[in-house]
Write a protein that binds this DNA or RNA. Structure first.
Lengths: 291, 291
DNA sequence: AAGATCCATAGGTACAGCCTATGTCAACGA
DNA sequence: TCGTTGACATAGGCTGTACCTATGGATCTT
């Protein structure tokens, strides 16, 4: 017996005739006939009734069919399992992440992934703006994206990994009149943020939105240099809204940090193409979902 | 991929080395090396770490192993299923049965078996005496035996198919003094039976045993011609003890039939060799156990 | 350091699978 | 009724591959 012979038998059953089966494999009809005849000779009994121009399974053929299908399925499984493992031992995983999510949680995830699969090179792309995360994933330029919006476009799927609190970061020495900061008090500060379209800027707009529709915050500094925001706050240039991990780091450098009176959080989501199932991407996703 | 290649991989894992695996298959060591190398080339990744004089599975090999084992198991299953079916479409089933069990239940079982498996020739042997049923099965001369004793000798296994009532069969016109017949009343009749060693004779001895140890019944006629017993009773030559199916038939021909005061039954058992599993015998056994 | 052991490689032979061409038989249509 | 069509079987030739023996190279042991 042979995987080839078994697959020929299955093909004949599925296609209904030797000729159609041979065409579907593809192999010549005589080759298929001979292979099945050899199998029948080996097993000592016919698997098909030849009825002139029709064939049907004998009872022996019926008995053969299901184990043969399982055998072929397991052959495919064995092959796929090996290929998957091999793909996790070499290859590349392209990620894209909002800048504010790189330090937390991305670096930890990448670290753990690299330790589990040292053969896989990880590349982390930087998006042009907040919408570019989903766009890079959609286009296939990156396999997975880390963002803060559950963008459920066609062909995209998202997993929420958790939520981050958004905190106000104020100049050193700022006096607080309570454990939290009202939005109006916040807008009393000159605000430091990044240009329109960035996720940091969108956070700010969201936080101040209830003050009045369409009114822009009073901006103190707008900069492309994200890494300058905390130093600017420390230098007294104004206040900023930052995700908790960045805000905590600023607090250690002397900034005054406080939650907003109306607590603000944002989701951390992993974006992927719905159809894609590359082993490396799948392993990364499982790792991210596990914690 | 190939059943052959997969079995080579499994053999290497089980034997611990290429050389030992090759010896166990058997195939030459270079052939096995080449076959595995070809498989690794096809899959695109090594399945074994070659560590000088030891080999261990790679992670790809680990992933390959279990599906491969299932695949091979299903291949064996497919082959066995076909062979089993084929054996039920041609071949022979040798049975042996006590004469008193041939009419009931054997003929019905054989009838149903033949209808289900018309290609299988059934041969029914006649035992020399009651012990010969088990002996013919033990020796392999017959595959299955129908008897009335749960003989659990070494290598033999039995299934109880049910129990038969043993009834007294009395000459026409006999007056009964109740719904049952006492053993002493029975032994008042001259008794008709078969020679020592037969199951019919043993039944008689069992029924009368409680009257007194060792005492033989008062025998009227002892005959090898089992089919003569009922006519002899009808002719007034004496009484007999017969299993219910035979007794009922005698009653229709005029005999007076009554159960014993101390009800007597015998088991109907199917005897087989413990190890044997011929498809025909197994099919017959299932049919018998199903009722 | 030499021997033993194990896997890989090389070279050659035989078999097995595939192909094209053709034969045979059953169903269908004129 | 007879030819046509469609489907499986058979024949012959070719190629690839699985097998073998012989040998090489590396590692562990004595």
């Amino acid at each position: 017996m042979d995987l080839r012979q078994a697959s020929y038998v299955v093909a004949v059953v599925d296609e209904g005739s030797f000729t159609a089966a041979a065409a579907s494999i593809p192999v010549s009809q005589p080759s298929l006939s001979q292979a099945i005849a050899a199998l029948e000779r080996e097993l000592g009994t016919p698997l098909f009734h030849r009825l002139g121009r029709r064939v049907t399974l004998t009872s022996a053929g019926e008995a053969f069919l299901e184990p043969a299908r399982r055998m072929l399925r397991n052959a495919a499984l064995a092959r796929a399992a090996v290929v998957d493992v091999a793909a996790l031992e070499s290859g590349r995983l392209d990620l894209v992440s909002l800048p504010t999510l790189v330090v937390e949680p991305l670096v930890d995830l990448v670290g753990r992934f690299r330790r589990a699969h040292p053969g896989v090179t990880v590349r982390i792309a930087e998006p042009e703006d907040a919408d570019a995360v989903a766009e890079l994933v959609r286009s296939g330029a990156c396999e997975l994206g880390l963002g803060d919006e559950p963008v459920a476009g066609p062909g995209l799927a998202v997993d929420e990994l958790g939520r981050q609190a958004i905190l106000a970061v104020l100049p050193p020495g700022t006096e607080l009149d309570g454990p939290t900061l009202s939005a109006s008090r916040l807008s009393g500060f000159p605000l430091i943020t990044t240009p329109r379209g960035t996720s940091t800027r969108r956070l700010l707009s969201t936080a101040l939105a209830h003050r009045g529709a369409g009114s822009d915050p009073a901006l103190g500094v707008v900069t492309d240099h994200r890494e300058a925001i905390v130093p600017l706050v420390l230098a007294g240039a104004g206040a900023a809204l930052l995700p908790e991990p960045l805000a905590r780091a600023a607090a250690e450098r002397g900034a005054v940090v406080a939650p907003l009176a109306r607590p603000l959080t944002r989701p951390v989501v992993l974006v992927r193409r719905a159809g894609d199932r590359s082993p490396a991407a799948e392993a990364f996703r499982r790792l991210a979902l596990a914690g």
